[in-house]
Design a binder for these strands. Structure first.
Ligand SMILES: [Mn+2]
Ligand SMILES: [Mn+2]
Ligand SMILES: [Zn+2]
Ligand SMILES: [Zn+2]
Lengths: 140, 140
DNA sequence: GTTTTAAATAGGAACAATTTTTAGTTAGTA
DNA sequence: TACTAACTAAAAATTGTTCCTATTTAAAAC
């Protein structure tokens, strides 16, 4: 998703192109680390000292509604946002919360077969494996 | 998980057997509909008019720690609890939130292969497909 | 059976994440 | 340049969950 494509998509739907909106979109859509709204907010504060957390949430939900972003809810902690909307697995540490992506062609094929058997056409998918990561296993 | 097995398991870990605790456990461990803490609380109010929501949460987390219960976090709405801890798929409506289980032998086999390829030993797993259910498609 | 005690409960306050509201500002159109 | 819908920031409200603590209770010790 390059910036011009994004701008076109926003304009199409009648959304204004503001510097804040663009900055939030660029940041989250290029992120690999499944950030929380607050993490995005804190990063952007450097460039936009007056930006509000509500604006961040609003923009994230806009991207979600446009189908460009996944919102992952968890117990105990705040939601995390993922610009990778294609089926992939999250390997998540139950202790430290670290999220790692697992995404291979073989996985996509195998998973597609399973979904086909079920006979539904999912809009979004979420595949989580919860583990204890090596680091947390060591200093348990 | 029958009631005597549960009581043994609780005693083993040094937990007291209280009527509230037993009632909450029995209710959630036999539920098929992925209830929220509040739904469990409201149902139990009939039998225990003074029961508190904090007790419900505490007991649900106890069961979770014992590995007998899954807690499913979502954006926008409260957590739901699932006594089915074996790998199965949730087919979830994005509009009304209805959750349907999909669980077949074939799925378990195929999924086990995928997990084996990754080379991890997950403690918990969560497989969600988000759709719009027939009902919500109709009266959209 | 009674006493002791550590753990659990009830109820409400506190908390944190998120959403809504409000009033002022701005991007895009004409 | 003027207009207006959409936006922004700040504050307030809301919601789900956890924390606190006086009281009660299950289970152990006597
Ligand atoms: Mn991801
Ligand atoms: Mn289930
Ligand atoms: Zn870890
Ligand atoms: Zn529905």
């Amino acid at each position: 998703m390059d910036i011009h494509h994004l701008i076109t998509k926003l304009r199409e739907k009648g959304h204004k192109i503001t510097p804040q909106r663009l900055a939030i979109c660029e940041l989250v859509l290029s992120s690999k680390d499944h950030p929380t709204a607050d993490q995005i907010y804190k990063k952007l504060k450097q460039k936009f000292p007056t930006i509000s957390l509500a604006t961040v949430y609003q923009t994230l939900h806009l991207l979600k509604d446009l189908g460009l972003l996944l919102e992952l809810g968890f117990p105990d902690c705040s939601a995390r946002f993922d610009p990778n909307i294609s089926p992939h697995i999250h390997i998540i540490c139950l202790k430290c919360g670290k999220i790692e992506d697992y995404e291979t062609e073989n996985l996509k094929e195998q998973w597609a077969k399973i979904v086909k058997d079920i006979g539904v056409e999912p809009i979004i998918q979420r595949l989580d494996l919860y583990i204890y990561c090596d680091k947390c296993k060591k200093n348990q």
